[in-house]
Design a binder for these strands. Sequence first.
DNA 1: CCAAAAGTGTTATAACTACACCCATGA
DNA 2: TCATGGGTGTAGTTATAACACTTTTGG
Lengths: 248, 248
Amino acid sequence: MTDDQFLETYDPAAFAPFAVTVDLVLLAIVEGRLCAVLQRRDAAPGQGRFALPGGFVGPEESLDEAARRIGLAKVKLDRVWLEQLYTFGDPDRDPRMRIVTVAYYALFPAERLIALAQAQDDLVLAPLRTDWEGEKGAPVAALDENEAERALAFDHAQILGTAVARLRGKLDYAPIAFFLLPREFALRELQDVHEAIVGRTLTKPAFRRRMLDQGWIEATGKFETGSAYRPAELYRLKPEFLNPQEGE
Amino acid sequence: MTDDQFLETYDPAAFAPFAVTVDLVLLAIVEGRLCAVLQRRDAAPGQGRFALPGGFVGPEESLDEAARRIGLAKVKLDRVWLEQLYTFGDPDRDPRMRIVTVAYYALFPAERLIALAQAQDDLVLAPLRTDWEGEKGAPVAALDENEAERALAFDHAQILGTAVARLRGKLDYAPIAFFLLPREFALRELQDVHEAIVGRTLTKPAFRRRMLDQGWIEATGKFETGSAYRPAELYRLKPEFLNPQEGE
DNA sequence: CCAAAAGTGTTATAACTACACCCATGA
DNA sequence: TCATGGGTGTAGTTATAACACTTTTGG
């Protein structure tokens, strides 16, 4: 059947329609660990379990707008990386009705999400596993072992795993790690972010040069204050990489 | 509003619902050029224009199943690369109703799509542009200049551009080019495929070694027949890379 | 002067490229 | 034996990694 034949005979009220939601993986590096925001569900299905923040797409709203509205309402919205991740639509993924969800992931400096989780008591920051070194196969259950009993609702474990895989895969060739740091940062902090994501230690000189040669960052001339020992120079992402212009 | 608050008050017949479709970018290398299957629309909107093959997702069907059903019904389905691409859902992308479409792309050996286009007279194989060398910015209107007047319906030019960008980006680190060739192929054919996708010539020895060292292919011991001059050895993709197991 | 972390030079290894060359085949 | 394309060796260049080293600061 073609689209048009379908539409001629299509009565929106005739059968249960699709709903379209947006689910968000809000990520930050907290205490050297990659963490995601989870929301405790206070109603069935999955009551008491945790789920990704999400919501329905409005009738006059694009998918990106919905993601921005739902994900950034709570957080101040300057300088965020927000990108569509993948779309999940198995028929039984939600027991209530047929829901197709477009997953997005967003990167924040730690302070933002810590403040968010403290302000809203149904939110938690859950550490994720990043040690599945090169293990092929479906990335599922990315939750840290301490959080393993915190079973996730719906297919949200799969979404989390997809987000971590995307972040790891994109880390080396796209300027995104910087969105997990304050606007100005020391190179050691940037290395900590990378190490938290790839799950292993990196050697300092190689990392430094790789970053400097990439041309993504520039020195500010300022230095850390209050450091116990020699203060590190602060760098920032060059402005031309601030806006997510590239389409994928 | 939370999901649950929404659902409590949600009457599926109360307002125009979302529809979910799957659109397919069927790709092959024909005469050294990357081509996509387009379908002539015989009804409004966009009558006379060309669009990607697509269809509605069934009520009991997953997205992957829908893509497989719509994309592979016409083509014999052994050894195909099929992967979700991106989801497009702007409110006005279809004038009839709110339609969110999940785009997939699929890779075929040329013969398959040539036979398909010959068998069904509303289908054409349109050459794509691959010469936008490193130009940043949104990849739009990937259609070849000769086909430029063949304006695409809806946002399908954007979908096409996204597919080409994904293919190019993935070519070097995922074993996918092989799905654009017969099961057994000569290394020169593989190089032609790569050159068609990246839009520039590659040097033979470097390419050969890269492919051999990657460990994705193995020699069959057989050789081309009917060649005018020295016959080339035939290679094949190692069986462990045949199934699209990796989730991304 | 010491401890601790910032930052840099120096070398070795691996990857990639370019170029030239040899090989096998049909006419 | 010649033309044509398949296939391979060698050397130069570049990127990457590892290691040791120097520098700067607060105490």
